[in-house]
Amino acid sequence: MSASKEVVKKMEDRPEKTRQIPTLIPRVDIYENDDEILLFADMPGVSRNDITVHLDNGKLALSGVRRLEQSGVAHLEEFGTVEYRRVFAVPQGIDMDKVNAELKDGVLRLHLPKSEAVRPKQIEIKAA
């Protein structure tokens, strides 16, 4: 029983948590062309101020919190307050300074422009 006691003890060490918001993985579409990578993420009900896009060390973390204020008695409840969160590895050669994001109709749209160095180039063949 020593192992279980340890677990119980750990619980006691920890301060009591307030109710956690459940996290959900948003569905995404990812597209690429010669100039940029384009990412769409479904985040219904999340307003602009509740979204954070964090770029750090090759990792792109999206987070959006939707808070639903319930009014009245629920007859049917299929969704609620939730945090949409997903982390992606960003390939090298993305120009971090020019990343931009927009939110429209509950869909986050993220433009990740490629830096000049990795864009494909057409090489002209000179006549010898």
Binding site: F40, D42, Q70, V73, V107
Partner: peptide, 20 residues
């Protein structure tokens, strides 16, 4: 996904429709 609430005077319905 849909939520249905009864607020007394009205029925309130919420539906998740991203991108529409």
């Amino acid at each position: 996904r849909v939520n249905i609430y009864d607020t007394g005077d009205a029925i309130e319905i919420l539906a998740e429709l991203p991108g529409l």
